[in-house]
Write a protein that binds this DNA or RNA. Sequence first.
DNA 1: TAGTGGTCTAGACCACCCG
DNA 2: GGGTGGTCTAGACCACTAT
Lengths: 234, 234
Amino acid sequence: MARSPANLSYRDIKQVVLDRIQTGLWSPDSILPSEADLAVEFSSTRTTVNRALRELAEEGYLERKRKAGTRVLKSPIRKAQFSIPLVRDEITATGAAYRYSLVDRKVQAAPSWLAARLDLKRGQEVLYLRCMHYADNAPFQLEVRWIVPDVLSEVLEESFEHSGPNDWLVSRVPFTNLELSFLATKANGEIAEFLDAPLGDPVFTAERITWLQGAPVTYAKLYFAPGYRMTTHL
Amino acid sequence: MARSPANLSYRDIKQVVLDRIQTGLWSPDSILPSEADLAVEFSSTRTTVNRALRELAEEGYLERKRKAGTRVLKSPIRKAQFSIPLVRDEITATGAAYRYSLVDRKVQAAPSWLAARLDLKRGQEVLYLRCMHYADNAPFQLEVRWIVPDVLSEVLEESFEHSGPNDWLVSRVPFTNLELSFLATKANGEIAEFLDAPLGDPVFTAERITWLQGAPVTYAKLYFAPGYRMTTHL
DNA sequence: TAGTGGTCTAGACCACCCG
DNA sequence: GGGTGGTCTAGACCACTAT
């Protein structure tokens, strides 16, 4: 049999369903026809309809329950996705030249606040690093990072003179768990100097903690130069 | 035939594959066996293996290309997902009592910066709102919002005395497009007063623009009380 | 051009849970 | 209890692209 041109893919079905939601034909809180019915309407199979509806549910448009059926959500629980790119990529993506510089590097006992935060043993040795990332030679980000060498003893042999710990880590550590926060902090003397920002000015800051199978790997604080915004479209 | 306990679901397969990645058995940049081979190994079908790998790819662990095969990504492009909850939900979720208060409400010609940003006609009338959200009577968020009544003429009849525009909007407008930014701003006099923050202190700020099928619907700026952080786990 | 993933079909059994 | 979604199977054709 010739493939009729009306043969709908799961993408097509997604689009049709989305249109019906967005034009209000299927209004918030209403129940969609069952997969079986839709399969008939679209001359498709339940498997294909299922994939379309499942993805729309993942994207936050629908809620699905056995027996109860598929319901249009009132407020799409749309999820903002931030890709957490490597600084280098973030900079070169804008066409600017990326430059890295190591500021500080030492092995020290974990400060007590860090030990508490990461659940480290008292006196646990950690690698402390400060680095600067520049975009076209303008300050872009100050990175302050502690690395726990427990799982990663090789890290102590890295100088990080010429490339940042981020690059090194991501290609080596398949982290299993991540906590990421965004906040606004006040530029203290050092931060202000490194970022070339007025003292006391607001600085957009990211805090990142990474674990590998339950064991803390690294804690990083990223201070962005004035004017930075983290943006997403969806 | 009895279901053998070794019968693997796509979830099981995901977990096994993830383990092999995280233990380094399949290291970054390496190529996985083909779906067909894996189906044999797991005594499953290609369809099921496909779903497992497809989801791992969506989650940022793998990259898949026809003919090239499935490759383990060096740096998991893990996506941070922020759910953009309604303020009310965010507050009540902590167990605190939510209180809303309308500060300002007027219809005005769109300020020129807003007109430019949203691509409005010159002199286009918009609804301007300022509201406060409190958690246990402590300032939580100052919301400054403009709504374009083009698509939503009913909005002009809403007083927003007792509930915020956010609630009203989400249950009415199936927005098609959203731009969300996070930044750090400096508390000016008004913001400082409303949020009970020291003048000049950093304020974590979200900016949100929403469109409905290409037409701008609303622009909002959300100023959070000092100490706020936006956190995600993955 | 051959191998790999992308997708669809047709059918089946099952788990859940609303009425 | 029965309807709905969740998932698996077995097989097929197709689209892309590395080599």
